[in-house]
Design a binder for these strands. Structure first.
Lengths: 233, 233
DNA sequence: GTACTCGATGTTGTATACACATTGGCATGC
DNA sequence: GCATGCCAATGTGTATACAACATCGAGTAC
């Protein structure tokens, strides 16, 4: 994608762990032992330790005291709080994106919308969904806003994926909103877009939390309903 | 303040550096060399390195490539972006705080308001101002929201302090808003509070940026107008 | 005089070794 | 059988040593 020739080991570990958490290879609650990761990657603990520290600061890993770090798994209340924060930030970012959108951007967004519409429900759809919303979160060049939205999305993304897995009509229900989003950006209606994105997020929040509550009361085979997961070798 | 008996060295370094950045002992742009800090504190580079990493993730330090970390100093555009983000987050947090406020909390806030009113313009006022707004950012127990608001405030706080130093009428002008905030919390008007806090922040943003722009064009003795600062020994 | 090379010095990145904390199991006492 | 305390195994926190990269200045070619 880009010419990142000289990434430090620590940064590579950050990227790898983040990817594995997003993939679900490292499910919520899974322990992340420094030596294990180091041994797996043929590194010393030092860069791994640094990577873990950063991911803790980022909120993807949790650590208290001198205990082993674990993959972040929000309670229902925490997940709702994340969406509460995302709603104003992401809707504002969308408005700013809209206000700064040129023709090229509109075309890119339309393409992403099409790709999302045609994606198979499951992992492919999740990827497209993420890409679509990250485009919308550009914020007209506001890097910090974009970064914060990205981090918050990453923290909640695994749970959206879970919801999609448990309810294959989920994408279909969101489709209308996505089409409307593209339309509003194309017509330059920033205010309307802001409202819509906010409502879209709050609706998603409700659906995801309902599915999670459901899964918690009727435990399926999903890792999301277990309280602890074995180490991934 | 509290029983923090067994803080790791790294955490102590984090606290110390953060304090020094807030104090202005480490002004914006100042280099933070790992061995220097380590030597000063009688530690090895390892915990210092970890502390630096965390502060970078927090946004208080900046580092690109393998170069020395520097204290974060936002451009005018970045400062405005921070306030843009703070406005919706902090106003929402205030509303949630208001909705969850009991009598004890209202009393505490009133006290903080009085303390702020009576504080001398300068460092004392800045401290009280920070304490007042952090109370307001509690968010009814939403830890993550509170944490994010706190981090964003810390990043912009040094510049408010600068503005207060350059314009001693700054506190006086803000006083009306602060009184109104206390009144709205006491009367339980969450919606009104949300609007007011948003406007208060945007007004502050304008004043601070005006003063900064002014200082940049007519360079005073302040470190804030210089592009690089020597290492603090 | 200018620009470029190259080396000396300072600073960060990583590996390794050891000290301290945590955890889980087992023995012991009740 | 159950609770409790002790101990070994495992894992994190820190120190030290070394390697890789960056920075700055002297010297040189033009």
């Amino acid at each position: 994608m880009s010419a990142d020739v000289a990434l430090s080991a620590a940064e590579q570990v950050v990227a790898l762990l983040r990817e594995q958490i997003l993939n679900g290879q490292l499910p919520g609650g899974a322990p992340v032992r420094e030596q294990d990761v180091a041994a797996q990657l043929g590194l010393s603990r030092t860069p791994v330790r640094e990577a873990v520290g950063r991911l803790v600061a980022e909120g993807l890993l949790i650590k208290d005291g001198n205990k082993t770090a674990h993959v972040f798994r929000p309670s229902l209340a925490e997940l709702l709080e994340i969406y509460e924060i995302r709603a104003p930030l992401e809707s504002m970012a969308a408005r700013l994106t809209c206000e700064a959108a040129d023709k090229d951007f509109v075309r890119d967004l339309e393409r992403a919308g099409k790709a999302l519409e045609n994606a198979e429900p499951g992992m492919a759809w999740s990827r497209q969904h993420e890409a679509f919303h990250l485009l919308l979160a550009r914020g007209g060049g506001r890097r910090r806003l974009e970064l914060m939205v990205t981090m918050l999305r990453v923290q909640s993304e695994p749970y959206v994926r879970f919801a999609v897995a448990g309810d294959h009509q989920f994408p279909q229900r969101a489709q209308h909103d996505h089409e409307e989003i593209v339309r509003l950006v194309a017509s330059g209606d920033g205010k309307g877009l802001e409202r819509l994105v906010r409502n879209h997020l709050l609706a998603t929040s409700k659906q995801v939390s309902n599915l999670l509550a459901q899964a918690a009361s009727a435990p399926t085979a999903s890792h999301l309903s277990r309280r602890s997961a074995g180490r991934p070798r």
